[in-house]
């Protein structure tokens, strides 16, 4: 990790792959949080409630 990071250079955009990875990871994590089913919530049948 102490060696220089590779950089992506497109037009005026210059970003280290480390930062790019971090940002892509955030976007993926956000998308997963939106899509993944959340456990133990919304019971259509109230007798199904858990404590």
């Amino acid at each position: 990790m102490n060696s220089p990071a590779p950089f992506l250079h497109v037009g005026f955009i210059l970003i280290s792959l480390s930062n790019l990875f971090l940002i892509v990871f955030m976007l993926v994590l956000f998308a997963v949080a939106l899509i993944a089913p959340f456990p133990h919530r919304i019971r259509h049948d109230r007798s199904d409630r858990r404590d």
């Binding site: 102490n2 970003i15 280290s16 480390s18 971090l22």
Partner: peptide, 14 residues
């Protein structure tokens, strides 16, 4: 874009 960069291969202040 130096403000968000860091020495080595570490993420900076993105």
């Amino acid at each position: 874009w130096g403000m968000m960069n860091e020495t080595g291969s570490y993420p900076g202040q993105a």
